[in-house]
Simulated scan of single mutants.
Amino acid sequence: MAHSSETEQLLDTELLRYARQILLDGWDIDAQLRLKSSRVVMIGAGGLGCPASETLVRAGLGHIHLIDDDVIEASNLQRQTLFLPEDIDKAKALTAAKMLERINPLVTACGTVARLSEDNAYELLDMAAGKPDLLLDCTDNFATRDIINRISVRYQIPLLSASAIAMQGQLALFEPHLNTGCYHCLFGSVVADAAADERTCANSGVLASTTAIMGNLQANAALQYLGLTKNPLTNKLLLWDGSRMEQRLMGYRKDPECPVCSSY
């Protein structure tokens, strides 16, 4: 977790921009400084990544790095809120990063057009400069989420994973350094069977509000984690059902025989 140095301060422009946030009970200048000094890597700059990254950047996150190998299509504009019609055929990661820096010039946003894998993770996550404070999984398939989880466990980086399909969503925040379980502990059997029958936005559809809500719930958890050093989802899976306007929490435990995290 990144922490502000004793000499670091908020600029006058930052104090003005984040004034309503700093007024919150439980969120003070120290929390804002912790957020400013945090570095997040987001995998996926689509339906979830757009609202999550925009909220984090507006709130004052210091540095965000978006990784995505896809280009913008007309069908993305229904829910991917950082893109405009003239952006069709452009790289999502680069276009989103450019828009984020326009939204808040006080933060640093960069994009990489690539598909994250276990082989290139050290380089893409810029591990030579130190571990990111948080990984945000904003992808849309189990295979990629499984890879991101393995990277999270291997390098002991907290992972905030969100999913959205149709009118439903899920959210969990894993802390591998605390040995409390990982994505595979929770979804192991699903991951194993996913290749045979996987629902995605492309084949099942998604309501525009679903990704907006889940992306902002993801940002909400990230803000608490980075600014307040608090995990509001410790060993819990958040389940959101838009058709019934219901939200509930389901507990889970570390699998002592998990093939991903049991040896750490």
Rank of each mutant, 00 (worst) to 15 (best):
S4L: 11
E6R: 05
A19K: 03
R20T: 05
L24C: 08
D25I: 02
G26W: 06
G26K: 03
W27Q: 00
I29M: 11
D30M: 05
D30S: 07
K36A: 03
V40L: 11
G44M: 04
G44L: 07
G46T: 07
L48W: 10
G49Y: 08
C50S: 15
A52E: 01
T55E: 10
R58K: 15
R58W: 12
G60H: 09
H63V: 11
I64Q: 11
V71H: 07
I72T: 00
A74F: 09
Q78N: 15
P85T: 12
I88C: 05
L94T: 00
A97R: 02
K98E: 00
L100G: 02
E101G: 01
N104R: 11
N104L: 04
P105Q: 01
P105Y: 07
V107T: 14
V107M: 12
C110Y: 10
C110P: 06
V113M: 14
R115D: 04
L116V: 14
L116F: 13
L116Y: 12
E123R: 09
L124W: 06
M127F: 13
K131Q: 14
P132L: 11
D133A: 13
C138Q: 04
F142M: 15
D146T: 12
I148W: 06
R150V: 01
V153R: 03
R154V: 00
Q156V: 04
I157K: 01
P158S: 02
A166L: 12
M167R: 13
M167L: 13
M167F: 14
Q168D: 08
Q168G: 08
L173V: 09
E175V: 13
N179M: 09
G181A: 05
C185L: 01
C185V: 00
L186S: 04
F187T: 00
G188Q: 03
S189D: 15
V191S: 04
A192C: 10
A194M: 09
R199S: 13
C201S: 03
C201I: 01
S204P: 13
G205Q: 06
G205D: 06
L207D: 01
L207E: 10
L207Q: 14
S209K: 04
A212Q: 06
I213K: 06
I213M: 13
Q218E: 15
Q218F: 11
T229E: 13
K230L: 12
P232C: 09
T234Y: 13
W240V: 07
D241G: 07
D241T: 13
G242T: 02
E246A: 05
M250Y: 14
M250T: 07
D255G: 04
P256Q: 04
E257D: 15
C258W: 11
